Amino acid sequence: MKKYAHKKAYFADQTKNKLLDWPKRFNIINGIARGLLYLHQDSRLRIIHRDLKASNVLLDTEMNPKISDFGMARSVTGNEMGAKTRNVVGTHGYMSPEYAVDGMFSVKSDVFSFGVLVLEIVSGKKNRGFMHQDHNLNLLGHAWKLYKDDRSLELADEQLADSCNISQVLRSIQVGLLCVQQHPDDRPSMSSVVHMLANESLLPKAKEPGFFTERNIFDEGKSGSQTRSSKNEFTITMLDPR
């Protein structure tokens, strides 16, 4: 059995961003999508991760992703798609509205988290703490604003200029926005996501995302929260064989 040492790579780090060109990022997006599809549909038990974020995705030396840290995961059986809990766990910035507010989690909660992750991978920016000179929207709101103005390509990380496949970038952004739509029923299943990423078929129009209203940056951080959350680091861990 191989032993691995952990090394962290930060998308938000402009130096390390250069290591992740568009083909690598698109491969990571597709790999995470297939991993979630396995958890939601192909495994013996339907598994809802509940804490999907960048720091819970491991990359091997060939940049192939693997979803990790199942400490907050829940399994459901049969035709069950989710459940309700009083103990909301997860990471702010990745949690779906229905889960963060009402404790309702389902496979569509993971889809929302995946959508956030896609937009972060494309942009090289974190959703939580995102800053823009023209507004106080988070990354989801910024992506939505550009999408409505038919300017989605502006979301892409500047580091991707030399490796960018415009069609794939635009498709990934739209898939990400479809995944973070406000209402769970509007979000696609992971099987649909995998299909949409792999094909050139026409995509449905995205509806308004959840958690994208403008915030008062001076008040941010002052209010308390009763939600238990894990540390919100925007990292992807690379696995290096010793």
Rank of each mutant, 00 (worst) to 15 (best):
I67V: 14
K125Y: 06
A54F: 05
L58I: 00
P65G: 06
L20C: 06
R151C: 06
P241R: 13
N138P: 01
Y38N: 11
L160D: 06
V76Q: 05
S68R: 05
G31E: 13
G82T: 02
L45S: 13
Q41S: 09
G78I: 08
V116P: 12
I47E: 01
G221H: 13
K7F: 08
G93P: 03
L52M: 04
H92F: 06
S109V: 07
W144P: 00
M81G: 07
W22R: 01
V88K: 05
D60I: 04
K53R: 04
R215K: 04
F112S: 03
P209Q: 15
A9F: 09
N199F: 15
Y99G: 06
A12R: 10
S230I: 13
E208K: 11
R171M: 08
D185Y: 07
D134A: 10
G103F: 02
L177N: 11
N232L: 08
E80N: 13
L140K: 15
K126S: 09
S106F: 00
T77F: 07
K2L: 06
D42M: 07
V101D: 10
S113L: 07
L203V: 11
G129L: 07
E208R: 13
L140Y: 00
R34L: 12
Q181T: 01
M63E: 02
L146R: 02
A83S: 09
N30Y: 12
D186G: 14
V89F: 01
L117D: 01
V111H: 00
S230D: 15
A33V: 05
S106C: 05
V122W: 07
Y94M: 06
C164A: 09
K84E: 01
P209W: 12
